[in-house]
Simulated assay, not measured.
Amino acid sequence: MPLENKLGLTNAVELALEEERISKTRAAEMFENGLLESLRPGSFEALRKIHEYLFSDIYDFAGQIRTVNLAKGNFRFAPVMYLRQAIQEIEKMPQDTYDHIIEKYVEMNIAHPFREGNGRSTRLWLDLILKNELGLVVDWSKVDKSDYLMAMERSPVKDLEIKALLKEALTDRIYDRQVYMKGLDASYKYEGYEAYKTDDLSRENELEEDLER
């Protein structure tokens, strides 16, 4: 069954398509309007605002800490009972080196603070930290889906694999529109969303706004 949503959709396929279309458009807006630059890198508030901006048109729980326990396969994410405490501890983690930043990212993934949309939001959050601290971002279009998913699955036990994988894809083109847009497409593809191209949605949105003026 699909999650309860503001769109009133009860078909899972239809919901997935609309979720991709709407949230990708919102993700593109965050680049165009400079919202990402206004957030404090590494803070949970930054992650919360990213999630809220992406999904507020779709879910009532956008930007809200989940109230249900989540699992993926045999792995259980942080229990609701300890989730807020876990988030506070993650916020305190250092982010002064590449290794520290990825360790913080891995821990936030383990926390999985939202009901849905954690991966997509947290990858944007990771890039915000890397950009601020190191002047780099991940070019996600260069990170293979299966390699990424396997590395993340193993990261709670051993994070060397995800560190090496993402390090190979780092770029200093931190304000490059195409790096960002193609990166979003790759990020969404990891979660099975690949019906739309972010750049196309962004341009369609710009045309609609011009017509409304």
Rank of each mutant, 00 (worst) to 15 (best):
L128R: 04
G117H: 04
K104H: 11
I101V: 11
E161G: 01
D139I: 05
Y105E: 02
D147H: 05
E89T: 05
N132L: 03
W140H: 03
E133F: 08
Q95T: 06
R173T: 03
A164F: 02
R173Q: 15
S155Q: 02
S141L: 06
V106R: 12
E133V: 08
K131W: 04
E116N: 07
H112M: 04
N118H: 11
D176P: 00
E91N: 08
T97A: 07
M108Y: 10
A164T: 13
E116S: 03
I90P: 00
K167P: 00
L165I: 07
K167Q: 13
E133M: 14
D176V: 05
M152W: 06
D176F: 10
L160E: 15
P156Q: 11
E161F: 09
L124N: 02
V138P: 00
L128W: 03
N109F: 10
S155N: 01
A111L: 04
D172I: 03
L136W: 13
L126M: 10
I162R: 01
I129Q: 14
P113L: 04
L128M: 14
A164Y: 00
R120G: 05
I102G: 09
K104N: 06
K142Y: 06
R154F: 12
L124H: 01
R120Q: 08
K142G: 04
L134T: 05
V143H: 03
R173Y: 14
H100Q: 15
Q178I: 14
L149Y: 07
A111S: 03
